[in-house]
């Protein structure tokens, strides 16, 4: 029992340290303009709080232990009015003046690119809008160019969600029937994890997404590829998977551009094989994980709208997995 709990403690400590080092979903490893200013604010507040705590503590020890004499009336008045009224009012006022303008940046307009993100239960509909009005639908992953401010137009389908990529910026609620806006400006290329930050039902904790910040030229190339139709399946198993996809009516809910699948209920799968995660940040993009997901949706994501295709033979699920993984 003792060894057990010690192991558990060690694991907990390791998890804590590792999660802090990883930084893919941490406000302590800021990689966006807005996250950096929030981090600065947090440091100012924390250091300020520590200094104040030490000052008050020292003063308390001084008047109760070191020099516990009766104070002159004048001294006491200065201490109470000065330390209890004037000082906190000025300090809080200064902190307000410093912190309030920080709220402007995340509301700044985009510099050309806008991404419409609609929160569904429990995934993200993503739609890139270019300055010329062209729309490029995608899902469950957000790609942003480094160095420019991209606007995010946020909506929700049925319940309230909240959009949050801790390493890039603050969070913004996504409210059904009410459009909200936030912009993000990554400063270093990398992959950061976003997470729904407002309880939205059974699989709220399983509603995540990867955010990929790319150098502008890489981003332009990726966007061009994303705008294309799906590649036709290249291998025999993939072609078999495509047939099963059509036979089982997957296209009733999902779109694979360039095929007959034009459903709008679930995520767009045109380039699902090139994403960094499957099922909104939960699984890896491998043929095996696709097969697992399609066969056991409700076990992996409780109460999800997509039915489990557990009646399909293993070979069919495997073929579907190969087909979808090949949709690069």
């Amino acid at each position: 029992m003792y060894v057990h709990s010690r192991n558990a403690l060690a694991c907990l400590a390791a998890a804590f340290v590792l999660s802090a080092c990883d930084g893919r979903q941490s406000v302590l490893a800021p990689s966006g303009t807005d996250a950096l200013s929030v981090f600065d604010l947090a440091r100012v507040m924390f250091i300020g709080a520590v200094v104040l705590w030490l000052l008050v503590g020292t003063l308390f020890i001084y008047v109760t232990r070191i020099n516990p004499r009766e104070m002159s009336r004048r001294k006491a008045e200065i201490l109470i009015v000065g330390g209890g009224v004037v000082f906190p009012v000025l300090l809080l006022g200064a902190l307000l003046v410093y912190s309030l303008p920080l709220m402007n940046a995340p509301r700044l307009a985009d510099e050309g690119l806008r991404v419409h993100i609609t929160a569904e239960q429990w995934w993200w509909r993503v739609d890139y809008e270019l300055p010329d009005g062209t729309r490029i639908p995608s899902a469950n992953e957000l790609r942003l160019p480094v160095g420019t401010r991209t606007g995010l137009v946020l909506n929700a389908k049925k319940v309230i969600h909240s959009f949050w990529v801790p390493a890039l910026g603050g969070k913004t609620d996504m409210i059904p029937g009410r459009e909200t806006f936030q912009s993000l400006q990554p400063v270093t290329a990398g992959v950061y994890r976003g997470q729904c930050a407002e309880f939205c039902g059974a699989s709220h904790a399983l509603m995540a997404f990867e955010t990929v910040a790319m150098e502008p030229e890489d981003f332009a190339a990726w966007l061009e590829a994303e705008a294309r139709d799906a590649q036709p399946p290249a291998t025999a198993p993939a072609r078999r998977g495509a047939k099963i996809f059509a036979r089982e009516g997957c296209g009733g809910c999902h779109t694979v551009r360039g095929t007959d699948a034009v459903g709008q209920v679930g995520p767009d799968l045109t380039h699902v094989g090139s994403r960094k995660s499957l099922a909104a940040g939960i699984l890896d993009v491998t043929a095996e994980d696709f097969a697992d997901w399609i066969g056991h949706t409700d076990a992996i994501k409780p109460e999800v709208a997509m039915p489990s295709y557990d009646f399909l033979p293993r070979e069919d699920l495997a073929a579907l997995g190969i087909y979808l993984e090949g949709l690069k």
Partner: peptide
């Protein structure tokens, strides 16, 4: 009054 006035004077948009 000062604290009520600071947000609208320092934040430039409705968002």
């Amino acid at each position: 009054v000062v604290y009520v006035a600071l947000p609208p004077l320092l934040i430039e948009s409705c968002q």
